[in-house]
């Protein structure tokens, strides 16, 4: 498995090519913005009927990351469900799958803007979580440090010999780490966006996801 070493507030972390974050010292895997049930929510709200397979695809990738790392603790960093009704409407097979993934693991659901409030799944429900030197919350607070957050779905573009390659990306500086979206049906916000350039310090890096995660200076 390919991963990229990153350090935040002294914690040695590994950015996985899948978009998950692994913290070996804490045996912890963090994923952000799963947006489970997105296709259901879109159809419910009168949109089109997208292929209803994104939840199982997202869970399959999560299962594979859990297998590969053997992490005993899991943090879902908010917007785990596309909304609370979508969480309720997940088919039984997918609910069972989540339960199986949770078995024997300490599982934390962080609240997101899409899924505020507790959801009827096992595990701990928190607004934010302090773990060692780090704080995990859904949306970055500009004043805080040593913070891991999600929400923005960052992506970054690299120009290599006349070709633009765009991938979801981790953004990191000495104060914070912003996670890419892990869910299958998620788009991205370019790292150039003022929302991201305003949060990240001038020396920030981006780690592009993909077969081999790649660290570059954050394009801005």
């Amino acid at each position: 498995m390919n991963m990229c070493d990153i350090t935040l507030a002294g914690a040695a972390l590994k950015a996985l090519g899948s978009g998950a974050l692994y913290w070996p010292a804490q045996d912890l895997l963090c994923v952000s913005d799963l947006h489970l049930g997105k296709s259901e929510r879109i159809a419910r709200r009168g949109g089109t009927q997208l292929p209803p397979y994104e939840t199982r695809d997202t869970l399959a990738r999560l299962a594979s990351d859990l297998d590969a790392t053997g992490a005993r603790k899991v943090i879902c960093l908010g917007d785990s469900f596309d909304d609370l009704s979508a969480a309720m409407a997940l088919p039984d097979a997918e609910r069972l799958w989540i339960t199986r993934l949770q078995a024997g693991r300490h599982w934390v659901w962080i609240e997101g803007n899409h899924d505020p409030g507790p959801i009827e799944y096992g595990g701990t429900h928190l607004a934010e979580l302090a773990e060692g030197p780090l704080t995990f919350r859904h949306i970055a607070s500009p004043a805080e440090t040593a913070e891991v957050s999600g929400h923005y779905h960052p992506k970054a573009t690299l120009h290599a010999r006349g070709r633009a390659i765009t991938r979801p990306a981790f953004l990191i500086d000495e104060d914070r780490l912003i996670m890419p979206a892990y869910g299958t049906y998620t788009g991205g916000l370019r790292s150039h966006d003022p929302a991201l350039t305003g949060l990240m310090k001038p020396g920030a890096h981006a780690v592009l996801t993909g077969a081999r995660p790649m660290r570059i200076p954050m394009p801005r």
Binding site: A68, A160, R215, I216
Partner: peptide, 26 residues
């Protein structure tokens, strides 16, 4: 290409290139 370009960018920015190490395994 991506690896080469990433390395070039990092070194241009005055940063050490990612060490080429063996694949990490659990």
């Amino acid at each position: 290409l991506l690896a080469a370009e990433a390395e070039r960018l990092m070194s241009t920015a005055g940063l050490p290139p990612e060490p080429q190490k063996r694949d990490w395994r659990v």
